[in-house]
Design a binder for these strands. Structure first.
Lengths: 329, 329
DNA sequence: ACAAGATCTGGAACCGATTCCAGAAGCGCT
DNA sequence: AGCGCTTCTGGAATCGGTTCCAGATCTTGT
């Protein structure tokens, strides 16, 4: 059996309260007492029981981290960075994977809500109101999404799209297709908006291709439609769709970037490995995961940093082999 | 404030104990009482506080899940399946990512050990003894590794290697290189052993290429060495190394599979997308994650299934474009 | 209708911490 | 030394459940 605070108190010849204070608020305790406690703690290898502490303080030292799909390298990267950072704060991370399903998102939050101190939520599908209400008054940091005034960290999607459009325009493209991802996705709407508003100024004509599932098959499925639209360039909601496009184009004898240029989003590992390697908008996953935890930790300590509770992280266009000059007509 | 058991007891006009029993052991309580409790529970929307329950029962309903690298698609897949399964059991999953570091593995286990009911560990780097001792007497399921008689679930690496060797032999290869991964990795040792013991019977000569880091760069770095060994085929510790090999071979003007055939391990998404697509040994990630949780859940309920506490899951060779007939000399 | 036995129930102890409160000890000063 | 003030300390309540135990209630057989 592990040593309890009573054992420490007995060994040190002081009361439980003193032990508790010596550990939690060392300056409220006389130096002599503190030392006796410290010695006893060391001797017994005492560590406070987190559960018991949680019961009286109402804090568990655990946070919930929700992602739509941990198998997606973007989220895996974010989680990895977040979990490393959480360690620094002594926070444990409860992982929840919603499988891209809105109902599951809500469900998971609801069940976890009673065992965590706060949430970092990457919940692109759930409705705004539902999301807001289900968290109750727990501290929450949203990732990759804005809902009202809730603290959140997003990637600068608009700027990423702007870079992509500018890149295409500079290569002489006049018509660009945007292949939309899930209709319910906040990020998708954001990117779509950015495409619409950014294209005009660059003299680009936009064709919108229907909402497809954000995976390889989605890209394959929409490829022929894109081709029929007679565009010379495509911006895909994400890399997987982009890779699907590349693949189907190849099968159809359409060369990339000779006939059509393609830009993805996310910079997943595969994008650098395929040929032609995919030009893509990269997002600072590590920074996102870290910042999410930092922000939540601040919230947990009532230390609201007013400025930084709504960060927007810079995105960067990575030019690879899937984009080139527009074909001469 | 959420309703407590006292509120329920008061509303139902019974004692706390009866409420507790009505919920935990309904058959120890008179039907009439049970119904009153149920009604009160429904009316108040009562849900027992898991922390409080944890304090008296010593069970938290949380398990620790350790992986060496959540950004590795193999582990992401395993975690995803595991977390889904855990939901069925009402278990929450504390994720820990050790970054492939032995010391971190131990460290994470140690800190988590006091807040979980048990562990699913994918800890390929920590030493056997240390691993065994750090878990104390908590239920543990090992993944992808065997340590003594501990319950564990592994992939049938040996059979995967066998299939790979047989495939190469059937294509007429006589010399095969095995590119080893991290020296300290249990899986690596296992695969190496299988290569050694399986090659002879098939008339294959084996060349071992030094231990490299299990990533793209590792493959790139070792490629020239492999080439110098004058083999016609390579089995890589994992796909990332395989992809690195393919890339560097391409740069050196060595064609795959014309000059050299390459087989990887893990079947990560990128392997199917690159060209030539990588022949690889695939492992049932979902099954592994699920089985890990199932096994741990059994352990938690003292329901040891003697037979299945040491499962070995079937692996499958997926033949793609990176393997072909041995070149004529 | 009653005794014996089985079944239910409520009170209270307990899990292991934190924290409030009142009283004790320590301090500086005259 | 004695006073008032600050700083420390220990006892006890509390968090929200579970579970032991003894007593109350219900069955059952006669």
């Amino acid at each position: 059996m592990a040593a309890t605070i009573k054992d420490v108190a007995r060994l040190a010849g002081v009361s439980q309260s003193s032990v508790s204070r010596a550990l939690a608020a060392p300056d409220q305790v006389r130096a002599a007492t503190r030392e006796r406690v410290e010695r006893a703690v060391a001797q017994l290898g005492y560590e406070p029981n987190r559960i018991a502490r949680g019961l009286s303080t109402g804090r568990t030292g655990t946070i919930g981290f929700l992602v739509p799909d941990i198998a997606n390298p973007l989220f895996a990267g974010i989680v990895k960075a977040a979990q490393r950072r959480a360690r620094d704060f002594g926070l444990a991370v409860l992982l929840a994977d919603s499988d891209e399903d809105p109902a599951t998102e809500i469900d998971l939050i609801r069940t976890l809500t009673k065992q965590v101190d706060g949430f970092v939520l990457c919940a692109p599908r759930a409705g705004d109101d539902e999301l807001r209400s289900v968290c109750g008054d727990l501290p929450v940091v949203l990732l990759n999404r804005r809902v009202g005034q809730l603290p959140s960290i997003i990637f600068d999607n608009a700027d990423g799209i702007r870079q992509a459009l500018a890149h295409l325009a500079a290569l002489g493209h006049r018509r660009v297709a945007y292949v939309a991802g899930p209709r319910t996705s906040w990020v998708n709407r954001e990117r779509l908006r950015a495409v619409r508003s950014g294209a005009a100024g660059l003299g680009l004509e936009v064709v919108e291709a229907g909402n497809v599932s954000p995976d390889f098959e989605g890209g394959v499925a929409v490829a022929d439609l894109v081709l029929a639209a007679a565009v010379t360039s495509v911006i895909a909601y994400n890399d997987m769709i982009g890779l699907g496009l590349v693949s189907r184009f190849g099968a159809r004898g359409v060369t990339v970037p000779g006939d059509v240029s393609i830009i993805g989003f996310d910079d997943i590992p595969a994008s650098a490995l395929v040929s032609p390697a995919l030009t893509t908008v990269s997002q600072p996953k590590d920074q996102c995961g870290r910042a999410g935890i930092d922000l939540l930790a601040d919230l947990l300590n009532d230390r609201e940093r007013p400025g930084s509770s709504r960060a927007s992280l810079p995105t960067r266009l990575i030019v690879r082999a899937s984009t080139g000059p527009a074909p001469k007509l």
